[in-house]
């Protein structure tokens, strides 16, 4: 550890500086009234905390949690079989399919969002084949966007775990008389749970905090918590309430991580 441990020092300090300090500033902002990040004349107040209970913020948080949960579940339903199927492929096909899964990530996420936005409009390219999706501004559009963008993050961790799994365990369970279904439910799936947990986190977290995606695909009509925070910072310069909401989101996310962690016996990422 000694030598390598030293190598990790710069990273550790960068983390303290770039994660720790901003969070401390956010906590300070959350309980004061200031003009932007200017702390001169700041006074302690709990006004922001009482405002949290307003319906707008509660509903924005609920929107985020509901839509990202749906997206995560769909990602899992699609992602697990895909990952399972890829592990079963011959090596030469395996890399081909993996490249196909990765290739959308080679183009910028915003571009892909805008591409979906174009297709979701009533008048779009798709009119040429007689289709008008007309989904812009709906929750469905946001969920489709989230699934399409975060699906690879579900497939990869699951694939990695499945691929590295000790095949002798499967053979052993078959020798001991387990049926195909039992092999899957009693051996393969439990062993792949750590991959599922990372996959869930890597799709749930970014989609719960997304703001560009719901802004574009939601036609500005559906507010997720990311949009509300963005508005507070960019439009009304209420850094105080914005910081408090961000902290609330961090707390919710940490809470979610703990729950997943506990179920996995600390086997996370």
């Amino acid at each position: 550890m000694g030598y390598l441990g030293k190598l990790s020092k710069p990273y550790k300090w960068a983390m303290y500086l770039l994660v720790g300090v901003p969070i401390i500033i956010m906590i300070m902002l959350a309980f004061t009234r200031t003009l932007g990040v200017d702390f001169t004349g700041a006074e302690f107040t709990l006004d922001n905390v009482t405002r949290l209970n307003e319906q707008v913020y509660r509903q924005a948080i609920r929107n985020s949690l509901v839509l990202s949960s749906i997206a995560t579940i769909i990602c899992f339903i699609i992602g697990y079989p895909v990952a399972y199927m890829i592990t079963g492929l011959k090596d030469k096909y395996k890399w081909l399919v993996l490249v196909m899964v990765i290739s959308p990530m080679w183009s910028n996420m915003l571009l892909r969002i805008i591409a979906w936005e174009q297709l979701f409009k009533p008048n779009s390219l798709l009119n040429a084949i007689g289709v008008s999706l007309d989904l812009l501004g709906t929750r469905t559009a946001i969920v489709i966007g989230m699934v399409s963008i975060y699906l690879p993050f579900m497939i990869f961790p699951i694939f990695t775990v499945l691929d590295k799994m000790d095949k002798s365990l499967i053979e052993a369970s078959i020798d001991l008389g387990a049926s195909q279904i039992q092999v899957f439910t009693k051996v393969i799936f439990p062993l792949s749970l750590s991959g599922v947990a990372s996959g869930v986190m890597m799709t749930f977290l970014p989609s719960a905090t997304a703001f560009a995606l719901p802004e574009r695909l939601g036609g500005g009509r559906i507010l997720l918590i990311g949009n509300v925070i963005e508005n507070l910072f960019k439009r009304v310069y209420n850094y105080n309430l914005g910081s408090l909401l961000s902290i609330v989101v961090i707390v919710i996310i940490f809470g979610a991580m703990r729950i997943i962690n506990r179920q996995e016996g600390g086997l996370i990422i």
Binding site: V56, A60, G220, R221, V228, V236
Partner: peptide
């Protein structure tokens, strides 16, 4: 801030 709240509430 009040105007922003009005707009956000109107969207919900």
């Amino acid at each position: 801030q009040m105007l922003e709240d009005i707009m956000m509430r109107a969207k919900m």
